[in-house]
Amino acid sequence: MTDTLSGRPGPREEGWATRDGRRLHWTTTGSGEHTIVLEAGIAASSSVWSLIRDPVATFTRVVTYDRVGYGTGKPRDTTVEDALLDLEAVLEQSGAKGPLVLVGHSWGGVLMRLFTARHPDRVAALVLVDATHEGMRIMRSGAFILLSRIAAKARARKARTGALRRSLEAGRGELGRALSALPTALRDDLLDELSSPAIWHQSAYELRCVPSSLRSLPTARPDVSVIAVVGTQAVGWAERKARASIRAAYETWLPTVPNGRLLEASRSGHVVPLQDPELLVDTLRELVTSLSTDERGP
């Protein structure tokens, strides 16, 4: 049972889901009526949820996993369809039951929306954490994606020379600033991951999937509760422009969703799971409580 009184997470299991020669490491923690599935963004393993998983597992079940090419996996070309089938395999082989609360950060939010469109009967709610949105015109630009893939390959080269690790350790850039505020053990683990060329090679594969994933999003709005968490902190012109773009996209879209609302993460920029984990834990606790109350009725 979930140990909500002591604040300790419930039981943990881990294993490997296999599909089409692909192996995906998964972990389930806690127990409860609802299962929360945490989906990372591009260039991120499930480690990005390290500050979220155990606190949430004190009140419900949590599933995390590593997409192909992250964690212990080797880089491999992939498609949007591969990503969705891999997630289905993880949920089946980890024994995850519905109703599901899907939480997706960055591009992971797009994958969660696509999964919801495919399996609407399994999903109770969506939480989109500074998630890529089709209303962000730049994300549909072939030139932007090409430049992003070039940047990812450049980071792989910097990772090989050690220059990327030195930059992150110095707290440079949005990611470096996010890492600098973390507990030492988690910071070191993430530095090890991000200093591997493999993670940047995989991100280049996934970046190629972004335009097709946005085109695949259904025009019908999800008929579930949708919370969009948007970071507000920005340093420099480029980050401010990105913050404004994502906020504008959700301010336009959420009023068209039957049960949508916008939530500001005032302590973070893009990397909300690392910069403001308390906000996400509190949001998920309130959401699960609300869903449980609604399902039980008066």
Rank of each mutant, 00 (worst) to 15 (best):
D77L: 09
A125N: 00
D82H: 10
L128K: 05
E134A: 14
M112H: 13
L111G: 00
R113P: 04
G98M: 03
L85W: 07
D66E: 01
V62T: 02
L51Y: 09
A170V: 04
R149M: 13
L87K: 08
V68Q: 15
M136A: 12
A96S: 13
A154F: 15
S94F: 08
K153L: 14
A117T: 00
V103M: 07
V63F: 00
A131Q: 11
G98R: 02
I138E: 14
T116D: 08
R177E: 05
F59M: 01
A125G: 03
E174N: 07
R122L: 13
T161C: 08
V62D: 00
A57K: 07
V48S: 01
Y70M: 02
E81A: 13
D86H: 01
A163Q: 05
K74F: 11
T79R: 03
A154P: 03
R113Y: 08
A156K: 01
R155V: 05
V103T: 00
V80I: 12
V101I: 06
L111E: 10
R113K: 01
K74I: 10
S47P: 12
L168I: 03
L91D: 00
T79W: 08
R166L: 06
T60V: 00
A89Q: 00
L179C: 06
V103R: 11
V103N: 12
A143Y: 15
T79K: 05
M139L: 15
R113N: 10
I145H: 13
S141I: 03
D121T: 05
G71D: 10
L147K: 15
K158G: 06
V127G: 11
L168V: 01
V80A: 15
S167R: 13
G135P: 08
L102R: 04
I52S: 05
H133A: 12
S50A: 09
G69Q: 05
V63A: 03
L91P: 07
S94N: 02
V101K: 01
R157N: 09
W49L: 04
H133W: 05
I145Y: 14
E81I: 06
G98T: 08
V127H: 09
Y65H: 02
D82L: 06
A156I: 03
G135A: 07
G142Q: 08
R177L: 04
A125T: 05
S47G: 15
L87I: 09
L114D: 14
A151S: 15
L164T: 01
Y70Q: 08
A163G: 03
G176C: 04
A163M: 06
L100C: 06
W49G: 04
A143V: 14
Q93F: 00
R53V: 02
L147I: 12
L51M: 12
A152S: 15
A152M: 10
